[in-house]
């Protein structure tokens, strides 16, 4: 079994890999990175078109065109695809922000999931694992570090930088680093995992989504 990962950045994929591995026992090599990746060749890059094909735009584009999604799902062991979104820029994509009440996190998650399914033009929700991080995925990592609810943390990345002892602007996200700093999702006891989940609703929702889809599949 393999899980494809469409994420806004490589570092986001690392967090997703640790969370799912911890829950299911899958190995890092069971995850297939699909996005982000370089869209252009070195010639394009020299001509100024070298941006990484990632972020919200890339994910939206992929959902509408389904190049990587179909590639992956057409393979016999291509069973699930985790799709990641940070909600921080969601307003730009026509998603009205719900009221900031107790259900804010859950309502925003549902709005984004509906948007994704709209873009896909097909209900693939049974094979998709929605990694919708309210604001930023760094807020999920903060749950491993401090005992407080990170959902409403204003600038999660800055706080993470501070909590990890980096000087401002010095935390440069990359896959290996984020794999290391989110490693506890993979290695900690279920007791501790529960604690982390209680500190961020959107993290908990993702965890439950994986649990309800992947775990039964693995047990079959």
């Amino acid at each position: 079994m393999r899980i494809g990962v469409i994420a806004e950045g490589h570092s986001d994929r690392a967090v997703i890999v640790n969370i799912i591995s911890g829950l299911t026992g899958l190995d890092e090599s069971d995850f297939q990175p699909l996005l982000p990746q370089y869209k252009y060749d070195a010639t394009d890059k020299a001509a100024g078109r070298g941006e990484v094909h990632g972020g919200w735009n890339a994910v939206k584009d992929e959902c509408e065109n389904r190049i990587f999604i179909n590639d992956f799902l057409s393979q016999e062991d291509g069973d699930f695809i985790a799709i990641h979104f940070d909600t921080s820029e969601s307003a730009q994509y026509g998603i009205n922000q719900p009221e900031k009440n107790l259900n804010y996190s859950n309502e925003l998650r549902n709005l984004i999931i509906n948007k994704i399914l709209n873009w896909l033009n097909e209900d693939l929700s049974h094979v998709l694992l929605f990694a919708i991080a309210i604001e930023e995925m760094d807020a999920w990592i903060l749950t491993l570090i401090e005992n407080r609810n990170s959902t409403s943390t204003a600038n999660a990345k800055k706080r993470l930088e501070y909590k990890l002892g980096y000087r401002p602007g010095k935390l440069k996200p990359n896959y290996e680093l984020y794999l290391e700093i989110s490693n506890k999702f993979k290695t900690e006891t279920s007791q501790n995992i529960k604690k982390y989940l209680s500190r961020n609703e959107s993290l908990n929702d993702f965890y439950e989504d994986v649990k309800s889809k992947v775990v039964p599949f693995l047990n079959n």
Partner: peptide
Amino acid sequence: MRGSLGGVPEN
């Protein structure tokens, strides 16, 4: 080449 099969460097 797109990386959908695996078997390419990921870093």
